[in-house]
Design a protein around this nucleic acid. Structure first.
Lengths: 145, 145
DNA sequence: TTTTATGCAAAAGCTTTGCACGCCC
DNA sequence: GGGCGTGCAAAGCTTTTGCATAAAA
């Protein structure tokens, strides 16, 4: 979550040479609030709720522009649709339960060791911003198959 | 890769109480050959090349049936479309370069530590079958942004 | 004024689904 | 023979794209 609520979005856009529009400010705010858990569609819904008239196509184009500019990251959590997160926010990752869909955040520190290992063995720079790990949550793991 | 090329697929199907059809045998064979790197569409293409007439809808339905039966796993590698892999094959994971798309296999052993940590901290059973890690490969990491 | 973003709508791409026929058991 | 699987086609859903208009710089 960015500290200053609204002026900062403007600054972020300007810093990346993107035009400041009400739609973009709104989208950035919703992404920020979403903490990396919202899909493009969900972002659109939240925006419509408070500022009707923003077209979903605009959401997609804006998300793409923000991603290309390096302002947001895109992570595939489910089968369909990715979630978006502001770069510079609290760095965390997701444990996604494949049975009940529950999403748990885990701290980035837990993955530091793995990243180092992968870099050492393969020269591969694992993305540090947002990671999705699939499996079964504690509750579902105890249920019968 | 399953040792015995064709009879084993039949056995696998029967073991899961699924009917043995030419389409399913073909699909299993292609998944097996694909080593966990093929999408539903790619599987369809490979099958069409050697056995025209198999409908893509059948591919999707079969993949779903195999997945539900626990015979194959589904992993999201890119933004769109998942890849499929025979359960019981060589256990490995993928490093996916977000710039050039290169996919590198890594051995499951490297992830054992992380799995243990996650289980310990969250009681979350990270999927052991197929993991996708995004980032930049050695080559692309050296290129300018 | 010039450039870029938006709204609108159509199209595209992938996946799912209903139905009738045919094959597997 | 009974039930499941397949082909076919249509529908569904998410995402992309072309174009004219509107807004930002």
């Amino acid at each position: 979550m960015v500290a200053d609520p609204f002026a900062s979005y403007r600054q972020i856009l300007e810093a990346h040479h993107l035009r400041v529009t009400p739609q973009r400010l709104m989208i950035l705010q919703v992404i920020d609030e979403g903490q990396g858990h919202l899909t493009a569609e969900a972002i659109g819904e939240r925006i419509s709720a408070r500022f009707p008239g923003v077209h979903q196509g605009t959401i997609y184009r804006t998300l793409d522009a923000l991603r290309v500019a390096g302002m947001v990251t895109e992570t595939q959590l489910g089968e369909r649709s990715a979630v978006y997160e502001l770069v510079g926010g609290h760095r965390h990752h997701h444990l996604v339960c494949e049975r009940c869909g529950q999403v748990t955040e885990i701290d980035d520190g837990l993955l530091a060791g793995l990243r180092a290992t992968i870099l050492e063995h393969f020269g591969f720079h694992a993305r540090t911003d947002h990671f999705a790990i699939f499996g079964l949550c504690a509750h579902c793991a105890g249920l019968p198959t």
